[in-house]
Design a protein around this nucleic acid. Sequence first.
DNA 1: GCCGTTTTCGGCCCGACTGTTTTCAGTCG
Length: 574
Amino acid sequence: MSERDLADTFEAIANLLEIKGEPAYRVMAYRRASETLRGLGPEVRDIWERGELQALPGVGKAIAEKIDEFLRTGRLAFYEKLAAEVPAGLLDVLKVEGIGPKRAAQFWQELGITSLDALEQAAQSGQLRSLSGMGPRSEAKILAGIEALRGRETGRILLSQAWESAQAMLKYLKRGDGILHADVAGSLRRGRETIGDLDLLVASDSPSKALEAVLGYGRITRVLARGETKTSLELQGGLRAQIWIHPPARWGSAMQYATGSQAHNVRLRELALVQGLSLSEHGFRRIDGGEILCREEAKVYETLGLPWIPPELREDRGEIQAAKEGRLPELVEITDLRGELHAHSTWSDGKASILEMAQVAMDMGMEYLVISDHSKGLGIAGGLNVEDLRRQREEIEAVQARLSRGPRILQGIEVEILADGSLDFPDEVLAGLDLVIASLHSSLKQERGRIMHRILRAIENPHVDIIGHLTGRLINRRDPADLDVEQALRAAAMHGTALEINAHPDRLDLKDAHARRAVELGCLLAINTDAHHPEHFGYQRFGVMTARRGWVPAQAVLNTWSLEKLLEWLHNLR
DNA sequence: GCCGTTTTCGGCCCGACTGTTTTCAGTCG
């Protein structure tokens, strides 16, 4: 049983309880716990071993005991009992858009429906309309929902893909008739690594006009819902977008609401109630009926006696408490980054020459650029041997001479951590390079003990400055290697080896939760794009978002440092 | 089932949209 199964099991429990008609707050508790577990991933095992489960948000005594049972035995009696009472096929029924627990229970109890196929047949034969509250249109909607569910690919897309779609749509919206302003909200604004749908906010004094403009967007394939202030759309490629329209005077509260997360919003609204205020996307309502409008988002927080909380922190993972106590971190910003520590060139599998990479780095105002091509062990990437390194050094010096006002170009390497735990170059070769990144690219499926042996040896090697993309995961495509992240972070902190937050949108590795733990343990980090083309320097924004989600302050990030400080650190570390 | 500048018991966010309804329940975010 994996840790992902753990999150899924708790989500299934929430759904089954809901179909059973259990109290909503009990259901919410399991759902909340499931979200917490999903955000953690494998780290839950480390937390469990440390006996700190109940410190997790939404985990109390009862749920901690269930997590314990699951991790010890791989089973959960409570879940098995529940699954025996409520047919598991109903969980598929629940996935159909527009069907919630009440409908699912109704289908089951009144028509004996326990699977998607049975539901489809009942809808086709007109049986569903016999139920109270159901009519022909509901049947048609359900059939469409089943079809969409079957044809749907992976639910969530990469942060970068969502970002591009959003930028394209915003560009259109901002020119729209009756639209004063438009911006991104939702999980995209919070910088989550994957995005379910786009949430965009539009400011307008004339909502009907603005809505008309929204609906004129060329990439809409279907209008899923359409009200006076809110519309839900399907775009080409299947991505969905929700657009809210609010007057500028309410922009702040609307943006706060649309950004979420839902759990964060619930906490804020609870806080408001304590102060005799009711908070919604429209602003605050006083008990006496008065209203407080928020044109700026900061005013929402200010009204509650809080400093503005950066969107990336709004996951109900302690940020509200930290805000109350005035200990929100000073998060790293993209403008803090002074250079790039991990870039490839045509010397290995990069698509641009060192000169081309350096020219763009210069245009971006970088103070330094590390060319860190692959080592020979990664044959598929045309890795470098010792002789290549010598000739590459000459080219770097030539480029440096040509771009005298450009960034300082350093020669690094992304050296392979081989399957036996040794590195692809002997120490004396590594010692001759300006910066060494050690990464795993192969034998990622080894068992935990061997993977950890490799990682720890690399961390302990005094010539290794940074560990690249620690877990090797590819989002939506490849699971992380089986490693004890806690142990790796502790070793990195002890040896002063930095850890990369790889900003490539497929990787984002370290991920947010790992980065947060790394900072807690005193690790140094580097936000690296792993650029194989000058355009990839733009990935910095995704790396920074991930770091911010991990509560990472600028001073913990190597490449916010000046060249002098960086060189001094590199010198001392060796 | 969780949780505490109201509380270890008694609370637990708020509104838009849809489809079915003559005033609302269910779903969603």
